[in-house]
């Protein structure tokens, strides 16, 4: 299917096209955007992402492979952006197609949760006051079995 670390705007339509087939009865997408306020309430002007490209792509593929079998057969595509992003831009996009919606919803949620915990990508928040900070994801919680 389709896994990518890219330094250009994400193309959700391409992810959908990569997973959707005549057997797809349901398709779920998740898109994570740069939002205007940080978790601790500071006005944000943008985010910078960097990745260990080789490891990140390998781990994205592993997460996708797990998500595509764990809840039933599904087709999964994941793309994460790197570089400097402005407010409102998409940082991550996931598309999951399956015969029925339940599998697609579950696989999509699994994929984003595991991505945040396991894929070597880092995020630096830039604030409107000129300050900036590296922000870490919360520690992983084990996936529900």
């Amino acid at each position: 299917m389709h896994y990518a670390i890219v330094d250009a705007p994400l193309d959700l339509a391409a992810l959908i096209a990569a997973v959707r087939t005549a057997a797809s009865g349901g398709l779920v997408t998740f898109v994570g955007y740069v939002r205007e306020t940080s978790d601790d309430g500071r006005p944000v002007s943008g985010l910078d992402y960097e990745a260990h490209d080789e490891l990140a792509l390998r781990e994205l593929r592993a997460v996708g492979a797990e998500a595509s079998t764990r809840f039933g057969p599904a087709r999964v595509a994941i793309a994460h952006r790197v570089g400097s992003l402005e407010l409102g831009e998409a940082a991550v996009a996931i598309a999951v197609a399956a015969a029925h919606r339940g599998v697609a919803f579950d696989a999509c949620e699994y994929a984003i949760d595991q991505l945040k915990a396991r894929v070597p990508i880092w995020k630096r928040e830039r604030y409107r006051d000129g300050d900036a900070r590296w922000r870490e994801n919360a520690p992983a919680t084990p996936p529900a079995s």
């Binding site: 260990h52 490891l55 991505l115 915990a117 396991r118 990508i121 995020k123 870490e136």
Partner: peptide, 28 residues
């Protein structure tokens, strides 16, 4: 991480290896 494989303090290095230092992740 040495040459793409998870390592620990005791893992030996060899000439030309890449040792990557990965802080906690922040993707998504």
């Amino acid at each position: 991480v040495i040459n793409g494989a998870l390592a620990d303090d005791g893992t030996p290095l060899h000439d030309g290896d890449e040792l990557a230092l990965l802080p906690p992740f922040g993707g998504g």
